[in-house]
């Protein structure tokens, strides 16, 4: 039954890959496909999978359908750390880079979580507001840094904008490995994630330790997000949209949702990146912009749906 369920997802993934390999102004020569589009498609697949996974983990562990690494400030935290690393001359292939980016992601996520908790009951709205506040502050830090370091800011600017340009094989390999491990680990702990998706109180009484599970799944989601940010900068809404879309196929249980969100996120971002390359040739629209164009209205619809469900 599980395999049949995943069939439409894998079909979407295959379609997105074909689209990505064919899309772009440079035509269909073997060199272009192999040297430019293949690495880029692989990067889009990895970043999309990481963000879809992180979205599913956050939405489950926080019992909050409005959360994703972009809204919670996870991506911003990772981006700030990445920008500082660039300026300090720490290469993207260095383990130190990943450690710093992970620390930034983890710190920002816990700050949002802690702010929302301090505001009283951990409501969906409080978490979104706290995430917005943390993201806004961290984005301001990034902008400040970009303005101050003007001579290097063009490449950093594109990084912050969120796009998949030239991903070095070393970064792709290292990030890809982190994402695979995080996905496998998360998928194996699906029962703990299901318990948490009923809320911390219910999870505790079912025999899961909510403090520990929160820590574990935050760490996994932050590791995946860090790997994604290292490759593609800040790309929003993949993590938010993907779980909602794939739940229609996989159902709500993390058993199928976690792998489905990784596959679905990969397909979604790969298609968005290919669309960005083919909409206005020869100029390229960053995948992050495409995702925001599609994702922001989706978020508004979610907010509307959620508030209606309450009344």
């Amino acid at each position: 039954m599980g395999k049949n369920k995943f069939l439409p997802l894998f079909a979407a993934l295959a379609a997105a890959c074909l689209f990505s390999m064919a899309a772009g102004p440079a035509g269909l020569s073997p060199e272009v496909m192999l040297n430019l589009r293949l690495p880029r498609t692989l990067a889009a697949l990895a970043v999309g999978a990481a963000l879809g996974l992180a979205g599913a983990l956050f939405q489950g562990v926080l019992k909050n359908p409005l959360s994703d690494p972009y809204i919670l400030g996870t991506s911003s935290g990772a981006t700030v750390a990445a920008v500082f690393c660039f300026l300090a001359g720490i290469e993207r292939t260095s383990p130190l880079f990943f450690l710093a980016v992970f620390a930034g992601a983890f710190g920002a996520t816990f700050l949002s979580y802690w702010l929302a908790r301090a505001a009283g009951r951990l409501s969906d709205a409080a978490l979104v507001l706290a995430g917005v506040a943390v993201s806004a502050f961290l984005s301001a830090v990034v902008m400040l840094t970009l303005s101050a370091a003007r001579e290097r800011s063009l490449s950093l600017f594109y990084f912050v904008l969120g796009g998949l340009y030239a991903v070095e094989p070393g970064v792709l390999l290292f990030s890809g490995a982190i994402i695979l491990v995080a996905a496998a680990f998360s998928a194996a702990r699906w029962r703990a994630l299901d318990a948490m998706s009923l809320g911390a109180e219910k999870a505790y009484h079912l025999g899961a330790d909510p403090e520990r599970e929160r820590l574990v799944f935050f760490a996994l989601a932050c590791a995946a997000t860090s790997a994604a940010v290292a490759m593609g900068g800040t790309i929003g809404f993949v993590g938010l949209m993907t779980p909602h879309i794939v739940r229609l196929i996989s159902g709500p249980s993390a058993r199928f949702l976690v792998p489905a969100a990784a596959v679905g996120g990969a397909a979604l971002l790969t298609a968005a990146d290919a669309a960005g390359r083919s909409l206005f040739p020869p100029s390229e629209i960053p995948a992050g912009v495409i995702m925001a164009l599609a994702g922001a209205p989706f978020f508004m619809w979610l907010l509307w749906k959620n508030s209606r469900g309450r009344n």
Partner: peptide
Amino acid sequence: VPSETTTPYDFSARELVLMGRTARSGFW
């Protein structure tokens, strides 16, 4: 059994009842 029993996700009744077995074996 808490007083407020809501979940934002559409679990089936049986899936929810099965979660009562969360503590019976390792999460793996």
